[in-house]
Design a protein around this nucleic acid. Sequence first.
DNA 1: GCCGTTTTCGGCCCGACTGTTTTCAGTCG
Length: 575
Amino acid sequence: MVLSGIREVIWKGMEASNRTISERLLLMAQVLEILDENPFKVRAYRRASEIIGRLATPVAGLSITDLDAMEGIGEGVALKVQEIASSGTFRELEEALSRIPPGLIDLLNIEGVGPKTAKTLWQKMNITSVADLERAARARRIRALKGFGEKKEALFLRSIARQKTPATRMNREQADEIIAVIRTVMKEGTWTVAGSYRRGKSTVGDIDIVTTDDPRRVNSLLHGISDEMIDVGDKKTSFRCRGSRVDVRFTSPSMFGSMLLHLTGSAAFNIRMRELAISKGASLNEYGIVYTSQGISKEFSREEEVFFYLGLDFIVPELREDWGEVEAAHSHTLPTLVEQGQIRGDLHVHSSWSDGSMDIRSIARAGEELGYSYLACTDHSSSLGVARGLDEAALKCQAHEIEMVNRDTSCHILHGIEVDILADGSPGLPASALRDLDIVIGSIHSAFSQESDVMTRRIISAVSHEDIDIIGHPTGRLLGQREAYAVDMQRVIAAAAATGTALECNASSFRMDLDDLHIREAIQSGVKISIGTDAHGPRELHYLPYGLGLCRRGWATPSDLLNTLTCQEVLEYVS
DNA sequence: GCCGTTTTCGGCCCGACTGTTTTCAGTCG
């Protein structure tokens, strides 16, 4: 099948993003699944889609050799990636798509509908869209099919209704709120949060819990906090709480380690671990390790024991993504990651001088309570009218107040600013205003929709500006609300490496920007990372661990961060 | 379709729960 003329015109001149390529490969996997093709071929496409989808660097320009060198991508997919890069699709996908009705793929988004069900609904009832499915379920026609009944109809209808308000991934603060609700019914010391939350990801799809508590006791209590119980069992229970899915796995203390390992994931990491076990003649699951030939099984109360048993160093949850950590654990070359106790301060806080709610003294007190030796007060510059930004004169007054507060606080307030990077790349305040400040963050707050090359050059000119020390929230994304602006982070990272400018890891639960993979790339290029909470009030000062988790996911060691430096060392670094 | 410290052919992680069934297929994580 040939591309439609319209799509060809739209496509012309565009370069396929990793997201586009990833989506096309996933679509191929889904279509092949419905067509009942070799499940391992399906898995290969799915895996390639995941690998490219999470990559920070664009793959569109890569050669076949470079693509083939990537774990999980072979020559077959490499050729398809190139085809997508030049045309937006590939021949085999179009061929496969021509064999199924266009709306059928959407059915896969309905809970309880997988490839087999989709195919059955299509071939036996001519259902080819979500709308068709809804009509048939309402008319109670689906129960007539062999293998389907009333409950399936009800499930489809519930799921379709929910799909009309699509569930987005939670940010970490929202996840913390749900965990707080769960805490009200769980017995202290008997449970742990696992899953992507434990791995420190910027967003969380569902909450995973491992518990040694009694299933009957817990299940009866969970009813009280659930919107809906999805599955209830004595090994596993799933329910919905405040709109989000929660999975609970029950285990015994003697098997807690392997269950926690299993439920922490990631899926790709679990597969690697199980393949490793197979290579040693064993089988790894959430209950332990089994040597099938000899019938020997082993239980693990702690995760560490599983790693040791497989000949690996312990891999912290943040690294478990199959991004090379298993190999590093095997060769004893895992990095020693930065820890919370090594953080000496927060490098991005707003005061009531601009749009924050804390005065300088409150910030200093909060810093003392958090055990910090410094906090950077970085209000907005005057070019950002909406945030009551500071001009040069106001900055002088603020300097005086900070000086007064610094006389009697153990948490030193660094006098800084978050100056706008204007549309032309210049800072929103004159050099005379910036020169005397301790620390200057440059951030984009306007003209978000500039074309990629313009935006990239704009940010690079800020990176190169002698008074700007840190680039704030470098990609500008707002989780679930606004996409990152079009910026080539590779070029920005290269420029930052050349000038010694730090890139911020903005720890606000709404931003989480830079994210893990960009942090890793920056660190590999020798760029320093600065964690800032961007706090506008006292509660938000507690965002710092969110950012720390991202840095750990980016393989950050203490020397990769500004926040592990002493106050004096920070001043020396930025001067 | 990918991959190889037994292999370039023949494998490919593993288990829970539901619904609709008389033993299991399908979905999900």
